[in-house]
Design a protein around this nucleic acid. Structure first.
Length: 283
DNA sequence: AAGCACACCTGCTAGC
DNA sequence: TGCTAGCAGGTGTGCT
């Protein structure tokens, strides 16, 4: 259930450990993970290639291969990418396994796409056909960190829309990368209600929302993302992040607000998602 | 246009 | 202790 900071942490891990290493062999154990193409397309597309770059757009990982093709990986709710010694025991639900030659100072290893709920995907595609195979990439809004979202750009995104702020932040076509956890943390930091309508913000509130967006997301990247109780999210090496220690509202229903001290954190469904917020200081 | 319900899956846990 | 309903960090579709 990774969001921008978790995906960015995985991206950095791939750049540090996998770049330039030849993919010698690929196994696909579950067709659903490669449903957009086929096991053969993913196996043939990856075998013999090397990753020459890894980019991120919102929650999408985009690997560039030396074949000029690209690999798109989305972890959705329960996906993990794990790097482990070749031949070591595999966790359940290891649906795609890429065998990596030694390199980057590392021995032969397996890069495993593990995904119990199988919502995640691995797609190998020719960039010339991106529009047909991965059309959602073209629909993504700006990535707040990768695209250096300015206050003016955010103001433009808010203007002309009448949406609950929570729904707006979750909409990947508006801003790419924010999910349920960070939407709540950002809105608390900005002292704005998740139900507040996007077109009603004052200039000062837009400034606050902008600062909170960048502040929360970049602090979360610095902390290696958030790993909640279920330990669903871990990085390439299987280590959790630590930003959950800085959460102010998520998972704190009934507790006193850490900012105003007097409100009680409420949990209710907003925009169809479980939402934590302080009704006293978030307006 | 915006909001909602539902679908896709599996696993964990809170509550009885 | 054992069962079950409910819930989960995402996204797409289809309906009002």
């Amino acid at each position: 259930m990774p969001e921008l900071p978790e995906v960015e942490t995985v991206r950095r891990g791939l750049v540090a450990t996998v770049l330039g290493r030849r993919i010698e062999r690929v196994e696909v154990g579950r067709e659903r993970t490669v449903r957009r193409t086929s096991p053969e397309a993913v196996i043939h597309g990856l075998t013999g290639t090397r990753l020459v770059g890894v980019d991120r757009r919102g929650k999408y990982l985009l690997g560039r291969l030396d074949s000029a093709e690209q690999v798109m990986i989305h972890l959705r709710m329960s996906g993990q990418l794990l790097l482990a010694p070749a031949g070591s025991p595999r966790p359940p639900h290891s649906h795609v396994v890429a065998h990596l030659a030694p390199g980057a100072g590392r021995p032969a290893e397996e890069l495993r796409f593990v995904d119990p709920r199988t919502f995640g995907e691995v797609v190998v595609f020719d960039p010339l056909h991106a529009a047909e195979l991965v059309p959602e990439l073209a629909r993504l809004g700006p990535d707040p960190l990768a695209d250096d979202l300015t206050r003016a750009a955010l103001a433009r995104l808010l203007r002309g829309r009448r949406r609950q702020l929570k729904a707006l932040l979750l909409d990947q076509a508006v801003l790419a990368g924010i999910g349920n956890i960070y939407a709540d943390e950002i809105l608390h930091a900005a002292r704005l209600s998740p139900r507040r309508s996007s077109e009603s913000l004052t200039g000062q509130q837009i400034t606050r929302l902008h600062a909170s967006l960048l502040g929360v997301l970049s602090a979360a990247v610095d902390a290696g993302g958030s790993t909640l109780r279920d330990a669903q999210y871990v990085d390439l090496m299987g280590a959790g992040g630590s930003f959950q220690e800085q959460h102010r509202v998520v998972d704190r229903a009934g507790a006193a607000c850490l900012r105003c001290g007097r409100g009680r954190i409420r949990r209710e469904v907003v925009a169809g998602r479980s939402t934590y917020w302080c009704p006293r200081c978030q307006r």
